[in-house]
Simulated scan of single mutants.
Amino acid sequence: MNTLLTKKKWFLLGTLLMVIVLLTGCWDQRLIKESRLILAVGLDLEPNGKIIDTVVYPVVNKGSNAMSLVKSVVVSSTGVTTRDARINLDKKVSQMFDASKNRVFLIGEKLARKEIYSSLDVIYRDPRGSVNAMVAVVKGKAKKSLEIQPQDSTLMNIYYPELLQSTSAIGLFEIETVQSICTLMFDEGNDYLLPYLRINEQQQRAEVIGTAMFHKRKMTGTLTGKESTLLLLMNGVKQDYPRFTFKINDQKEMKERNYITVLVNDIERKMKIHITPDQKVRVKLALKMDVNVNELPVDHLDSAGKANELNKTLTREITALAKKTLAKTQKANCDELGVGKRIRSFHYGDWKKMNWEKDYRNISIEPEIKVTIVQHGIIN
């Protein structure tokens, strides 16, 4: 009996040793201590056509009181492609760069107006590519946007994502990532917007001044903040705190008393598309908005008559803004509303007869706006 147990033990031990020998380790491991983690990237286009790749990575310095201080280090390099520029960057630092943790891509306007897919191609081909990184366009050079030093944030990988998230919450745009725009760049009849930033070097801050309109793979125009918010609402998307400020009269000596600020509380949006036999497209875009009065220094708004007058004024102002915004999207050939995608989905026979690349600019889009004040604050 003991002999049998001994044989079983030796058999199990031998089997275990064979399994251990056959086991493999983590063959593709990358230790953090052996890499420089890229946390923000800026891409620009030089006059000679080369790409400027600017990256931000953290460095930990130990202070005299045993406290560690983390600071951002900015380094740039050029190359004929994005990958070539990154290879040249690796030659400038003591460790290889790892971009898998990157949180934001900032693209210079000159590069954005030429074409962005070629510069992002390296990310889509890399299994460790940071496809969840946010994307934004910078007026001027993206490199300058990574060299600023805002007082309330020493790390660019925290400053820019938080700036984009907070600005998205007030209704200027939807957050887009490297992954989400990949589909849109190749989607027929559906375009997209990206945040549009301006750098204030004196204040050492970035400011979101609106959105950059894109058609397929390149930037074709810009919208102001107010236009961006309204276009998002016309697309049926309401963020947490979309607000508008409009001038309602010129009669008050104090300028502040000539304006009203409203917060959009709820929306109802409907789009109807009519196509004639000769492929003329007419779009009716109905948008109902329930708003709260956030600021109205001139009046307590304590009667239904005053509220109705303001409803008419706001409807008129927002309708005019809607027409102006839609005209700009058509001029830029940016089908952010996805009219072409709807035609392709529900009127495919007509879609096949159209050349949407040219036809979108000439379609008729008629906004029908109705604004209703549902709350006027806590003042009775």
Score class of each variant (00 low, 15 high):
I52N: 13
K238E: 09
L230P: 02
K216R: 08
D299T: 15
P367R: 05
A142Y: 10
V208R: 11
Q375N: 08
H347F: 05
K247A: 07
Q29F: 04
L230D: 03
V55F: 02
N102C: 07
N48V: 06
V374M: 08
L172A: 07
P150D: 07
L13Q: 08
E295T: 05
K50W: 09
G140H: 04
P367C: 11
N102E: 11
Q165D: 08
Q279A: 08
D53H: 15
S100W: 06
M96R: 08
P58L: 10
K272Y: 12
V264W: 04
K270Y: 12
I363M: 07
H376V: 11
S364A: 07
L4N: 13
N294K: 15
A307E: 14
R30T: 02
I181R: 03
L43E: 00
E188G: 00
K288H: 15
N157V: 04
M67A: 10
N2G: 13
F186D: 11
V104P: 08
D240Y: 09
S94W: 10
I20F: 13
V237I: 13
N311P: 01
R217L: 07
D240S: 10
K143E: 12
Y159M: 07
S130N: 14
I20M: 10
I123G: 05
S303H: 06
M234N: 07
Y259D: 09
L23D: 03
L310I: 14
L45C: 05
V93A: 06
I116R: 03
V298R: 15
L164T: 05
W27V: 06
M234W: 10
S168N: 10
K8V: 12
A85N: 05
A332C: 04
L37A: 06
K139G: 03
A66V: 09
G63Q: 07
A322P: 07
K358L: 11
V264T: 12
M354G: 00
E336S: 04
P195E: 01
K92T: 15
